[in-house]
Design a protein around this nucleic acid. Structure first.
Lengths: 122, 122
DNA sequence: CTCTCTTCTTAGAATCAATCTAATTTTAAA
DNA sequence: TTTAAAATTAGATTGATTCTAAGAAGAGAG
């Protein structure tokens, strides 16, 4: 069987920053009989192989993302993610330390349009 | 009573990136009869007030840190944190988007000295 | 003081994402 | 085949964190 390829495709194609549970539901919608634990297993393996990214935001379940270089705006209020592409900082960062840097994760907090609206209405 | 000040001081003084549980243990060592839930309550309040930082690394419990500007090296293998101070990126980032940015969190992954050693010994 | 209102603390239960266990099935290899 | 390795499964378990409901402490007003 191997659900790996199907799961990888969902993560890469949908630009939605899906949780394991959401990926599981998408699989079921497509008629797959896969089980949640298998989705977790595959996501862990894909992540370990460096083929998908894992996005960790305080208070929310892990979300998964393609690896192509980009950064994230994280809504301080609702936790929603928006893609954004800041300049590549790899060289700048590496030039400032002796340690061998592997990669980096830049999350910038903001208020998403919906939350900004909700807050001004109070 | 109010355990807030004592908890804030532990986070600010110790540069150890402590978890809620570790802070709780430090309080008890000092003779405090505080309860774990209260430590969580106070940490949540202090964080909401913007007086402490919360560090979220995939697979590890939340750790708490002073707010003074600095970044983190995160060991890919053991999750340990090391402080590092890269240049302030606020203006660079803000100049690249229309959204009003609040603050940012930059985590750079690497292998800490201990893990580098352990891996070359295999 | 003392009454009231709000904040803080507490024990214990509950939550829930994520992992583990142990058994089964698939796949690959020899 | 036979064996071994990898993937999947159902179900139980974990463990950090939050919630609940009740009690204690502090702060102001009169």
């Amino acid at each position: 069987m191997s659900y790996g390829p199907a799961i990888l495709e969902i993560v890469e194609v949908s630009r939605e920053h899906l949780t394991a549970e959401q990926i599981f539901l998408k699989m079921k919608e497509k008629g797959s009989g896969v089980v949640l634990a298998t989705v977790y297993n595959n996501l862990a393996r894909l992540h370990q192989q460096g083929r998908i990214r894992r996005i960790c935001v305080d208070g929310f379940p892990e979300r998964y993302d393609r690896t192509a270089r980009h950064d994230h705006l994280v809504c301080r209020r609702c936790g929603s993610l928006a893609d954004v592409c800041f300049p590549d900082l790899t060289e700048l960062l590496q030039s400032r330390t002796e340690e061998k840097l592997l990669n980096y994760d830049l999350q910038v907090s903001y208020l998403c349009p919906a939350c900004r609206k909700a807050l001004t209405e109070d």
